[in-house]
């Protein structure tokens, strides 16, 4: 199902668990609307991965309104992405352009080991 006109390339950190080595995987995000939040874009990608019989990308999220503090992601080299003063869940796709490549990593810190993909152990 198409939602909008943006097509993006994602390079996302995939790691099975804390013991195995991770690597970047490339995904195509198609038919993205600028009104989607960054996490809703991930929902679209995951839905198509599930439909293709592949494993979705694991990420932490809950409130999706910028207050619970769970959506930990490094986006294009910055925590919570390119915009100041907001969390990943508040970042909307209108901050990106059609054709962009977006690199998504878990929190980069030895203090926060990866549990799976983008999910880290903070506490």
């Amino acid at each position: 199902m198409s939602h909008g006109n943006m097509n993006l390339t994602l390079k996302v950190w995939k790691q099975k668990n804390k013991n195995e080595r991770g690597r970047f995987e490339t995904y195509q995000a198609k038919g993205i609307s600028p009104d989607m939040s960054f996490l809703e874009m991930f929902d679209v990608v995951n839905e198509s991965l599930i439909n293709e019989g592949k494993e979705p990308i694991a990420f932490d999220h809950d409130c999706r309104e910028g207050i619970c503090g769970m959506c930990s992601m490094y986006i294009n080299g910055r925590p919570h992405g390119p915009k100041e003063g907001i969390t990943t869940c508040q970042l909307h796709m209108r901050s990106f352009k059609d054709g962009d490549t977006i690199v998504v990593e878990p929190w980069r810190s030895a203090a926060f080991p990866v549990i799976k993909d983008l999910v880290v152990d903070i506490f």
């Binding site: 809950d62 409130c63 309104e65 207050i67 619970c68 503090g69 769970m70 152990d121 903070i122």
Partner: peptide
């Protein structure tokens, strides 16, 4: 179910 009790949805 969250990673910390401080994430519970009362927070919102």
């Amino acid at each position: 179910f969250q990673d910390s009790p401080r994430r519970a949805h009362s927070i919102a």
